[in-house]
Design a protein around this nucleic acid. Structure first.
Lengths: 166, 166
DNA sequence: CTACGTAAGTTCTGTTTCAGAACCTACGTG
DNA sequence: CACGTAGGTTCTGAAACAGAACTTACGTAG
């Protein structure tokens, strides 16, 4: 399977990965959430080559995750801003960072802390059920076939055990 | 920057991506949460080449995300199971799937639904603050320097605006 | 005891993508 | 008119990947 084919999979995960399933893309998005907007700033902070950066920014714009906005003309200059679709990736970024904080931090501890302005506290992100509000665990989630399912693939296999997901 | 160098970055996101920042790795993990355990099952379901699959399973085992467990000897056979560290990736997988459900679903709707066994309802995952329990938005999170921060890098830049994260 | 099947890989070859560096364009400034 | 700057594009060699065949260590059927 190639990148180009990923997009057409029925699995939501595969479709998402066709947009953000690349290490540079995710690092670019991290910087977007930190407020970075300009080509040369991304280039410097990430250490990515200009060619790849140009390509990824183009992909993200095409996918509607970023939009290219002119902030001056003469000379023409623009910046890349997160769209609503892009802002919706916040839980993805936060959960990745949180896993790194917990499992990959050096002995000095985590590199950054997050403060929730609404309540004032330093916090950890927690993933909960939209219906009952309790923390989700792989053991008590069951995967059901939805309306957009082509067939068979990506459904639980074997005796099935306890954990399930897609 | 190469894959090998990513691991040594101070950013938790970069460190996490050194383990899971690859499209095949994430698809393998999706299948792990669906209950897939064996080499040939991964191979068939994913359409990944055997070489890459062997490499990724080795990486994930080395990183402590999966463990290789013998389920019989004569002939020697083993399966790959998620460790605690691996199970902790559930929010990452769920948030990626959810974004795909919302933004990438075809016109038939989402391919699978998730049912929370604890409350019985079909649900969406929601990311909340561990301290006050309200839904997190990029606009009301501020990034602070933590104990493990080398310096300058990966902190908010420019006038800073509203959104922040690492 | 030979042939066939199966799980879990490894090896080979050609194609694609990537890294690093240099170059280009359109403008403003001294 | 030389220089700086933002935002790219182009070039070449190195690395990663895809597809297919081959390997190992067994069990089983004829």
């Amino acid at each position: 399977m190639k990148w180009s084919e990923l997009e057409q999979e029925t699995c939501s995960m595969a479709r998402t990965l066709s947009v953000i399933g690349d290490r540079w893309t995710l690092l670019i998005l991290r910087d977007c959430f930190l407020g970075v907007r300009r080509f040369d700033d991304f280039h410097e902070r990430l250490g990515v080559t200009r060619g790849i950066l140009a390509d990824r920014l183009k992909q993200l714009s095409k996918a509607g995750v970023l939009k290219k906005v002119a902030y001056q003309e003469h000379p023409p200059r623009h910046e890349y801003k997160l769209t609503g679709k892009g802002l919706d990736l916040y839980p993805v970024i936060l959960s990745i960072v949180h896993w790194g904080d917990v499992h990959m931090a050096g002995e000095d501890g985590r590199p950054v802390l997050h403060q929730h302005m609404a309540c004032g506290h330093a916090f950890d992100p927690r993933m909960v059920c939209s219906e009952c509000g309790t923390t989700l665990s792989p053991h008590d989630v069951k995967v059901l076939q939805g309306p957009g399912k082509a067939a068979d693939r990506n459904l639980p296999v074997r005796p099935a055990g306890k954990m399930a997901q897609s």
